[in-house]
Design a protein around this nucleic acid. Structure first.
Length: 764
DNA sequence: GTTCTAGAAC
DNA sequence: GTTCTAGAAC
């Protein structure tokens, strides 16, 4: 107990590296060499089963036991994929430990040569087999990210780095903690890139080269308050440095040396915010920068002694350079409004910036995830932000914002001193996202302006409430009447609603349920949706006429969510920057499936308007079908060159969920977290999945495909696609298919229905 | 197509 | 108490 009072905190170090990268040596060196009194336990999957290889579950149990006994843990397993690490991160944070990643990024050939040559290895991985395994594993490696929940990530690129890391952990006393952030990463690429999303346009701000004058960038020191036990390691932390404009340096120096009370004060009057709508929502950067500068300038005129910081991850951020130029032109005081390159969730620990309030580019449901700033903030703030948000609002309308006070338990509050998050929803110019404005910049600009105004006004309310509290605590408040700002806070109020806004509960935007929000959007923005996207407002028959589809009459109606592939097929040029698109031709687009149901799962999407599904396919479409098939085979062959262990099927869903004819090319491992339910499984492993070769043959013979395929097969029992054994639920099925080595049913071995590296492939 | 969640199954 | 599914909403 005494130790807890001194602030002792256990650490979970998740080692990340392939066989031969030195994980075990690292773990042993830390366990055996700890000089500072911290008790380390090595949890090694290769030996956890009475000296033999065990399971991840055993490792989790051992780690949990150790933490509960007040020991720190080294997780000695490969942990190369995010999913493999996630449970350990979760365990650590649940048990209030610091969770670190140490990524052993030695060159592949070094790992292979070590793995090949070693004898008597714990995991029995040695000899020639090791080379194959290491190579395969490295292909799947996902670099650890702070957004996964690590508070600290160390990348070791050579033995020297590893030695430094070992020393660091050896010297870590029971009450010491290491600074947060990413250390030693080779690339200068920002660490918090968003989770890859379907067709998410690469953030223009991080791709484009700044056309503006080159910023004078200066590294700033981390804040003094952050205990940094080892200076040399701190320096390593600036492999992806937080940088600010040179002109601010004086300001920062002041901040660092200010008295504690002043220090807090600066922070409590600072709002850091990301650019709204310019990343995933694809709002034009030039227009957005005008609006940011304009709304910020207006706001600063109304309020003195308040500070706004526009934050973006990328050094090459175009939105930052545009805003900087335009702010300079307007002669806005650069001490009160400036731009900052860095991670908005680490402004204090990595940038030394004091900032109590941060803006979040939220989604309308106010849910975590989605990538980008939203994911980063929710990850950094922990679950308590979700709960706190839920208490404040269910949903957000474009152009509005909502203040969420951060609970004191939130890591973002504890580590960074953030007291409030303001969720903002801006206008959307991305057809793949809700409330798409169809390039209507009149409306979009208005909404973006409203969004920033709402953000700033809410921020002002927080500051005023804080000032009011400060003053009443110090007895400086002159009168309680109306609660307007006392003069000594230098806050100026112009509008007549000032006193209204002082009542905190009135400051929030109207809180609506999801349903109300939906209706509200429809009323307020009748032109908001693409007609073809609106499923409820327009009868489906009408839509079919509008859709140039007079010649085709099908009973199928498509929900708004089912339009993505159609939208892509009709306008591929809009998504040309997406990493998900593998190939584009006049006839088809090859796309990585957003939610792959196997290691490799891509779609060949026809671009022919009116061809929604197999039901629409006629003889005249045969050449197209054959070319789509060939494209699929070509990609399958490419994947087989990369991994000869895969096997592929090419086929269509009898009744697809997404509009626009698309051919699935899917590897038969079905090893994917996105494969979650019976429908997923049965849609690829029963008669619901129509092999491309059979579809082509059937059209050749009959002129159309049979329409009798029943969706009932989707509800059938779960059977292994190889040995046909039945399984009670998805998790058990997945465990089975991971080990089933039976050959495929005989009909799949005919007519090239199954493509593998060992088979001769005839192109249809 | 996914997400969310109540309640069934274990 | 936890895991898992199925149905509704989007």
């Amino acid at each position: 107990m005494k130790e807890e009072e001194r602030g002792r905190k256990e650490v979970v170090v998740v080692l990340v590296g392939p066989p031969g990268s030195g994980k075990s040596s690292f773990a042993e060196a830390v366990v055996g060499g700890s000089t500072a009194g911290r008790h380390w336990v090595r949890v090694c999957q290769d030996t956890i089963g009475n000296g033999k290889a065990g399971t991840k579950i055993q490792c989790l149990k051992a780690a949990s036991d150790a933490l509960k006994e007040g020991k720190s843990v080294l997780v000695d397993r490969c942990n190369l994929e995010r999913e493999q690490r996630a449970d350990f991160v979760k365990l650590g944070s649940t048990l209030h430990a610091d969770v670190h990643a140490v990524s052993l990024d030695l060159p592949a050939k070094v790992c292979i040569s070590r793995a090949v040559s070693r004898k008597g290895h714990d995991g029995n991985l040695q000899g020639g087999k090791a080379a194959l395994v290491v190579n395969r594993m490295l292909q799947k490696k996902e670099t650890p990210l702070l957004t996964e929940g690590f508070s600290r990530i160390m990348c070791c690129n050579d033995d020297g780095d590893i030695k430094k890391a070992v020393d660091l952990y050896n010297d870590l006393g029971p009450s010491d903690s290491l600074p947060s952030g990413v250390f030693g990463q080779k690339s200068k690429r920002p660490v918090q890139v968003g989770i890859m999303k379907f067709l998410k346009k690469a953030d223009a701000s991080s791709v484009e080269t700044s056309s503006g004058p080159k910023l004078a960038l200066t590294e700033i020191k981390p804040a003094q308050q952050n205990p940094l036990p080892k200076q040399e390691n701190v320096e390593a932390g600036f492999a992806c440095p937080m940088e600010v404009e040179k002109g601010l340096n004086d300001k920062m120096e002041n901040e660092e040396h200010a008295k504690e009370s002043d220090y807090c004060d600066v922070g409590s009057r600072t709002l850091a915010f990301p650019s709204i709508s310019t990343a995933d929502f694809q709002f034009d950067l030039d227009r957005a920068s005008d609006i940011i500068v304009d709304t910020a300038a207006n706001f600063l005129q109304k309020f003195d002694n308040i500070r706004l910081i526009l934050v973006d991850l990328s050094e090459k951020s175009r939105i930052l350079s545009l805003v900087k130029q335009k702010a300079a032109k307007k002669s806005i005081d650069s001490n009160r409004f400036f731009t900052c390159v860095g991670d908005i969730t680490q402004l204090h620990t990595r940038g030394g910036l004091q900032c109590s309030v941060i803006g979040n580019a939220a989604n309308w449901r106010l849910k975590p995830g989605g990538g980008g700033v939203n994911a980063a903030i929710y990850n950094a703030a922990g679950e308590s932000l979700q709960h706190a948000t839920k208490k404040c609002a269910d949903a957000l309308r474009p152009g509005t914002s909502v203040v969420v006070p951060l609970p004191s338990t939130s890591p973002l509050r504890q580590r960074e001193g953030v007291t409030h998050v303001i969720h903002v929803l801006g206008p959307n110019m991305n057809p793949m996202r809700p409330d798409y404005l169809k390039n209507d910049y009149t409306r979009g600009s208005k909404i973006l302006r409203e969004a920033y105004n709402s953000l700033f006004e809410n921020f002002a309310s927080i500051v005023q409430s804080y000032m009011g509290k400060q003053n009443s605590e110090s007895g400086a408040e002159k009168s309680a009447s109306g609660g307007t700002s006392p003069n000594d806070t230098k806050m100026k109020r112009e509008d007549s609603h000032g006193s209204e806004r002082m009542k905190k509960h009135k400051l929030f935007q109207p809180i609506m349920t999801a349903k109300q929000q939906h209706e509200c959007t429809k009323v307020n923005a009748p032109n908001c949706h693409d007609d073809a996207m609106t499923s409820s407002a327009v009868p489906s028959q009408t839509r079919q006429v509008d859709n140039k589809r007079n010649d085709v009459v099908t009973s199928k109606t498509w929900g708004s969510w089912a339009q993505s592939l159609y939208e892509l097929a009709m306008n591929p040029e809009k998504y040309k920057n997406s990493d998900s698109i593998l190939e584009t031709s006049d006839e088809y687009i090859v796309l990585k499936d957003l939610y792959p149901k196997a290691k490799r799962h891509i779609l060949v999407i026809s671009r022919m308007d009116g061809l929604d599904s197999l039901a629409d396919v006629k003889k005249e479409h045969l050449p197209l079908l054959r070319r789509m098939h060939s494209a699929g085979v070509k990609w399958a062959q490419k994947f087989l060159e990369e991994d000869a262990a895969l096997e592929f099927r090419l086929g269509y869903h009898s009744v697809p969920s997404m509009r626009q004819l698309h051919l699935h090319i899917i590897s038969q491992d079905f090893n994917s977290a996105s494969l979650k339910n019976k429908k997923h499984w049965n849609s690829f492993t029963t008669s619901f999945f129509r092999d491309s070769v059979d579809v082509i043959e059937e059209i050749e013979q009959n002129g159309s495909t049979t329409t009798s395929t029943d969706e009932k097969v989707l509800a059938m029992e779960l059977r292994c696609h190889r040995c046909r054994s039945a399984h009670p639920n998805i998790p058990k099925l997945k465990s089975h298919i991971a080990i089933c080595k039976s050959s495929f049913p005989s009909h799949l071995l005919q007519k090239n229905r199954l493509l593998s590296s060992t088979m001769h492939m005839d192109r249809t």
